[in-house]
Design a binder for these strands. Structure first.
Lengths: 118, 118
DNA sequence: AGCTTGCACAACCTATTGGTTGTATAAGAC
DNA sequence: GTCTTATACAACCAATAGGTTGTGCAAGCT
Protein backbone atom coordinates (compact mmCIF):
# COMPACT_ATOMS: atom_id res chain seq x y z
CA UNK A 1 0.00 0.00 0.00
CA UNK A 2 1.04 3.53 -0.46
CA UNK A 3 3.27 2.71 -3.38
CA UNK A 4 3.60 6.34 -4.22
CA UNK A 5 3.31 8.58 -1.22
CA UNK A 6 2.51 12.25 -1.12
CA UNK A 7 5.14 14.60 0.22
CA UNK A 8 3.28 15.50 3.36
CA UNK A 9 2.97 11.86 4.35
CA UNK A 10 6.64 11.37 3.71
CA UNK A 11 7.52 14.29 5.95
CA UNK A 12 5.23 13.26 8.77
CA UNK A 13 6.32 9.66 8.73
CA UNK A 14 9.93 10.76 8.66
CA UNK A 15 9.22 12.76 11.80
CA UNK A 16 7.44 9.85 13.43
CA UNK A 17 10.64 8.31 14.69
CA UNK A 18 12.58 9.49 17.75
CA UNK A 19 15.92 8.60 16.21
CA UNK A 20 15.21 10.66 13.14
CA UNK A 21 13.97 13.58 15.18
CA UNK A 22 17.16 13.40 17.22
CA UNK A 23 19.16 13.40 14.01
CA UNK A 24 17.35 16.51 12.86
CA UNK A 25 17.94 18.18 16.20
CA UNK A 26 21.59 17.36 15.91
CA UNK A 27 21.74 18.71 12.38
CA UNK A 28 20.00 21.87 13.43
CA UNK A 29 23.09 22.60 15.48
CA UNK A 30 25.38 22.06 12.56
CA UNK A 31 26.06 19.83 9.61
CA UNK A 32 27.49 16.43 10.39
CA UNK A 33 28.82 13.29 8.80
CA UNK A 34 27.09 9.94 9.02
CA UNK A 35 29.47 8.63 11.63
CA UNK A 36 29.09 11.72 13.75
CA UNK A 37 25.35 11.29 13.57
CA UNK A 38 25.52 7.59 14.32
CA UNK A 39 27.75 7.93 17.34
CA UNK A 40 25.19 8.77 20.06
CA UNK A 41 22.85 5.96 19.01
CA UNK A 42 22.96 2.37 20.09
CA UNK A 43 22.65 1.10 16.56
CA UNK A 44 24.84 0.33 13.60
CA UNK A 45 26.04 2.84 11.07
CA UNK A 46 23.93 1.10 8.47
CA UNK A 47 20.77 1.66 10.46
CA UNK A 48 21.55 5.36 10.68
CA UNK A 49 22.21 5.40 6.96
CA UNK A 50 18.73 4.03 6.47
CA UNK A 51 17.27 6.76 8.63
CA UNK A 52 19.15 9.31 6.59
CA UNK A 53 17.69 7.88 3.44
CA UNK A 54 14.23 8.31 4.88
CA UNK A 55 14.98 11.91 5.78
CA UNK A 56 16.43 12.48 2.35
CA UNK A 57 13.38 11.02 0.64
CA UNK A 58 11.22 13.34 2.71
CA UNK A 59 13.54 16.12 1.58
CA UNK A 60 14.27 17.12 5.14
CA UNK A 61 17.98 16.84 4.51
CA UNK A 62 20.24 17.08 1.54
CA UNK A 63 23.61 15.44 1.17
CA UNK A 64 26.76 16.69 -0.35
CA UNK A 65 29.82 14.75 -1.31
CA UNK A 66 32.88 16.19 0.30
CA UNK A 67 35.94 14.00 0.02
CA UNK A 68 35.08 10.57 1.35
CA UNK A 69 32.37 11.74 3.67
CA UNK A 70 28.78 12.66 2.86
CA UNK A 71 27.82 15.46 5.20
CA UNK A 72 24.16 16.04 5.89
CA UNK A 73 22.53 19.42 5.73
CA UNK A 74 19.08 20.36 6.86
CA UNK A 75 16.45 21.55 4.46
CA UNK A 76 13.75 23.49 6.21
CA UNK A 77 11.32 23.82 3.34
CA UNK A 78 9.52 20.58 3.69
CA UNK A 79 9.40 20.88 7.41
CA UNK A 80 7.58 24.13 6.87
CA UNK A 81 5.14 22.24 4.76
CA UNK A 82 4.30 19.96 7.65
CA UNK A 83 4.12 22.77 10.16
CA UNK A 84 1.93 24.59 7.70
CA UNK A 85 -0.56 21.79 7.54
CA UNK A 86 -0.86 21.58 11.29
CA UNK A 87 -1.11 25.29 11.85
CA UNK A 88 -3.65 25.61 9.09
CA UNK A 89 -5.98 22.96 10.39
CA UNK A 90 -5.53 23.72 13.98
CA UNK A 91 -6.69 27.18 13.16
CA UNK A 92 -9.94 25.82 11.82
CA UNK A 93 -10.95 24.21 15.02
CA UNK A 94 -9.29 26.86 17.06
CA UNK A 95 -11.90 29.08 15.51
CA UNK A 96 -14.58 26.63 16.45
CA UNK A 97 -13.39 26.46 20.03
CA UNK A 98 -12.06 29.95 20.15
CA UNK A 99 -10.54 29.46 23.57
CA UNK A 100 -7.60 27.86 21.88
CA UNK A 101 -6.50 31.09 20.34
CA UNK A 102 -4.24 31.97 23.17
CA UNK A 103 -2.79 28.53 23.00
CA UNK A 104 -1.86 29.19 19.44
CA UNK A 105 -0.39 32.54 20.26
CA UNK A 106 1.70 30.99 22.99
CA UNK A 107 3.08 28.46 20.59
CA UNK A 108 4.17 31.03 18.13
CA UNK A 109 5.38 33.41 20.77
CA UNK A 110 9.00 32.88 19.92
CA UNK A 111 8.33 33.34 16.29
CA UNK A 112 5.55 35.76 15.54
CA UNK A 113 4.80 34.64 12.06
CA UNK A 114 1.90 36.22 10.37
CA UNK A 115 1.33 35.00 6.87
CA UNK A 116 -2.09 33.88 5.84
CA UNK A 117 -1.28 30.39 4.73
CA UNK A 118 -4.40 29.00 3.21
CA UNK B 1 10.29 -2.53 17.77
CA UNK B 2 8.87 0.53 19.34
CA UNK B 3 6.89 -1.42 21.88
CA UNK B 4 6.21 1.70 23.87
CA UNK B 5 6.12 4.78 21.74
CA UNK B 6 6.46 8.35 22.82
CA UNK B 7 3.52 10.66 22.28
CA UNK B 8 5.19 12.78 19.67
CA UNK B 9 5.92 9.75 17.52
CA UNK B 10 2.34 8.64 17.88
CA UNK B 11 1.08 12.01 16.74
CA UNK B 12 3.40 12.28 13.79
CA UNK B 13 2.75 8.77 12.59
CA UNK B 14 -0.96 9.35 12.95
CA UNK B 15 -0.56 12.35 10.68
CA UNK B 16 1.52 10.39 8.21
CA UNK B 17 -1.50 9.01 6.42
CA UNK B 18 -3.61 10.92 3.89
CA UNK B 19 -6.79 9.18 4.97
CA UNK B 20 -6.27 10.14 8.57
CA UNK B 21 -5.41 13.71 7.67
CA UNK B 22 -8.57 13.88 5.60
CA UNK B 23 -10.52 12.57 8.57
CA UNK B 24 -9.05 15.29 10.75
CA UNK B 25 -9.88 17.91 8.17
CA UNK B 26 -13.39 16.63 8.06
CA UNK B 27 -13.65 16.69 11.83
CA UNK B 28 -12.30 20.21 11.95
CA UNK B 29 -15.46 21.24 10.17
CA UNK B 30 -17.64 19.48 12.69
CA UNK B 31 -18.02 16.32 14.70
CA UNK B 32 -19.07 13.24 12.79
CA UNK B 33 -20.00 9.62 13.18
CA UNK B 34 -17.92 6.76 11.91
CA UNK B 35 -20.16 6.15 8.94
CA UNK B 36 -20.17 9.79 7.99
CA UNK B 37 -16.40 9.76 8.11
CA UNK B 38 -16.18 6.54 6.15
CA UNK B 39 -18.45 7.63 3.37
CA UNK B 40 -16.05 9.63 1.16
CA UNK B 41 -13.40 6.91 1.26
CA UNK B 42 -13.12 3.89 -0.96
CA UNK B 43 -12.63 1.56 1.94
CA UNK B 44 -14.65 -0.39 4.41
CA UNK B 45 -16.11 0.95 7.61
CA UNK B 46 -13.77 -1.33 9.52
CA UNK B 47 -10.74 0.24 7.92
CA UNK B 48 -11.94 3.68 8.95
CA UNK B 49 -12.54 2.38 12.45
CA UNK B 50 -8.92 1.32 12.53
CA UNK B 51 -7.80 4.75 11.45
CA UNK B 52 -9.93 6.25 14.19
CA UNK B 53 -8.26 4.01 16.71
CA UNK B 54 -4.89 5.29 15.57
CA UNK B 55 -6.06 8.87 15.92
CA UNK B 56 -7.51 8.08 19.31
CA UNK B 57 -4.28 6.49 20.51
CA UNK B 58 -2.44 9.60 19.39
CA UNK B 59 -5.04 11.56 21.34
CA UNK B 60 -5.94 13.62 18.31
CA UNK B 61 -9.58 12.72 18.71
CA UNK B 62 -11.80 11.67 21.52
CA UNK B 63 -14.95 9.64 21.23
CA UNK B 64 -18.23 9.98 22.98
CA UNK B 65 -21.04 7.53 23.15
CA UNK B 66 -24.26 9.06 22.00
CA UNK B 67 -27.03 6.58 21.51
CA UNK B 68 -25.81 3.88 19.16
CA UNK B 69 -23.29 6.06 17.42
CA UNK B 70 -19.83 7.03 18.59
CA UNK B 71 -19.21 10.54 17.32
CA UNK B 72 -15.64 11.71 16.98
CA UNK B 73 -14.40 15.01 18.31
CA UNK B 74 -11.10 16.66 17.66
CA UNK B 75 -8.57 17.25 20.39
CA UNK B 76 -6.19 19.99 19.42
CA UNK B 77 -3.74 19.78 22.27
CA UNK B 78 -1.65 16.94 21.01
CA UNK B 79 -1.57 18.44 17.59
CA UNK B 80 -0.13 21.52 19.24
CA UNK B 81 2.57 19.31 20.62
CA UNK B 82 3.59 18.27 17.14
CA UNK B 83 3.37 21.76 15.74
CA UNK B 84 5.42 22.89 18.70
CA UNK B 85 8.22 20.51 17.93
CA UNK B 86 8.43 21.62 14.34
CA UNK B 87 8.21 25.31 15.08
CA UNK B 88 10.81 24.98 17.78
CA UNK B 89 13.36 23.18 15.71
CA UNK B 90 12.64 24.96 12.53
CA UNK B 91 13.52 28.09 14.38
CA UNK B 92 16.93 26.78 15.34
CA UNK B 93 18.13 26.38 11.84
CA UNK B 94 16.24 29.36 10.62
CA UNK B 95 18.47 31.24 13.03
CA UNK B 96 21.54 29.61 11.65
CA UNK B 97 20.67 30.52 8.13
CA UNK B 98 19.08 33.83 8.45
CA UNK B 99 16.26 34.14 11.01
CA UNK B 100 13.89 36.21 8.98
CA UNK B 101 10.18 36.01 9.19
CA UNK B 102 9.87 37.15 5.65
CA UNK B 103 12.16 34.36 4.72
CA UNK B 104 9.70 31.99 6.22
CA UNK B 105 6.92 33.47 4.19
CA UNK B 106 9.01 33.18 1.08
CA UNK B 107 9.74 29.56 1.82
CA UNK B 108 6.10 28.77 2.11
CA UNK B 109 5.52 30.51 -1.18
CA UNK B 110 7.56 27.73 -2.67
CA UNK B 111 10.81 29.55 -3.10
CA UNK B 112 14.13 27.85 -2.70
CA UNK B 113 16.47 28.96 0.02
CA UNK B 114 19.81 30.43 -0.88
CA UNK B 115 22.52 28.24 0.52
CA UNK B 116 24.74 30.26 2.73
CA UNK B 117 25.55 27.17 4.69
CA UNK B 118 28.14 28.28 7.14
C1' DA C 1 50.82 -0.20 -3.88
C1' DG C 2 48.43 -1.41 0.18
C1' DC C 3 45.93 -0.21 4.41
C1' DT C 4 42.28 2.40 6.56
C1' DT C 5 38.31 5.19 6.79
C1' DG C 6 33.52 6.43 5.64
C1' DC C 7 29.70 5.08 3.80
C1' DA C 8 26.17 2.29 1.03
C1' DC C 9 24.10 -1.89 -0.85
C1' DA C 10 22.06 -6.53 -0.30
C1' DA C 11 19.96 -10.18 2.09
C1' DC C 12 17.65 -11.38 5.90
C1' DC C 13 14.49 -11.25 10.08
C1' DT C 14 10.57 -9.72 12.87
C1' DA C 15 6.96 -6.51 14.07
C1' DT C 16 3.76 -3.20 12.43
C1' DT C 17 0.66 -1.11 9.09
C1' DG C 18 -3.29 -0.86 6.29
C1' DG C 19 -6.35 -3.18 4.17
C1' DT C 20 -9.77 -7.21 3.69
C1' DT C 21 -13.88 -10.47 5.08
C1' DG C 22 -16.71 -12.37 8.43
C1' DT C 23 -19.02 -11.94 12.67
C1' DA C 24 -20.56 -9.98 17.11
C1' DT C 25 -22.74 -6.62 19.94
C1' DA C 26 -25.33 -2.63 21.66
C1' DA C 27 -29.02 0.56 21.06
C1' DG C 28 -33.09 2.23 18.89
C1' DA C 29 -37.40 1.13 15.96
C1' DC C 30 -41.49 -1.64 15.16
C1' DG D 1 -39.20 -9.88 21.06
C1' DT D 2 -37.28 -9.17 16.57
C1' DC D 3 -35.20 -6.28 13.00
C1' DT D 4 -32.17 -2.78 11.70
C1' DT D 5 -28.51 0.41 12.29
C1' DA D 6 -23.95 1.70 13.87
C1' DT D 7 -19.88 0.22 15.29
C1' DA D 8 -16.20 -3.00 16.95
C1' DC D 9 -13.55 -7.31 17.22
C1' DA D 10 -10.91 -11.24 15.15
C1' DA D 11 -8.37 -13.57 11.76
C1' DC D 12 -5.99 -13.10 7.83
C1' DC D 13 -2.83 -11.11 4.23
C1' DA D 14 0.73 -8.37 1.65
C1' DA D 15 3.73 -4.65 2.06
C1' DT D 16 6.60 -1.60 4.84
C1' DA D 17 9.61 -0.37 8.64
C1' DG D 18 13.48 -0.85 11.38
C1' DG D 19 16.92 -3.35 12.71
C1' DT D 20 20.87 -6.84 11.91
C1' DT D 21 25.23 -8.95 9.53
C1' DG D 22 28.15 -9.24 5.74
C1' DT D 23 30.34 -7.16 1.92
C1' DG D 24 31.76 -3.69 -1.56
C1' DC D 25 33.88 0.42 -2.90
C1' DA D 26 35.76 5.08 -3.34
C1' DA D 27 38.91 8.41 -1.24
C1' DG D 28 42.68 9.56 1.60
C1' DC D 29 47.09 8.00 4.18
C1' DT D 30 51.77 6.05 4.44
Amino acid sequence: MAVVEDELSLVFSALADPTRRAILERLARGDATVNQLAEPFAMTQQAVSKHLKVLERARLITRTRTAQSRPCVLDAEHLDQAAGWIVRHRQVWADRHDRLDEHLAALQAGQRRDEGTT
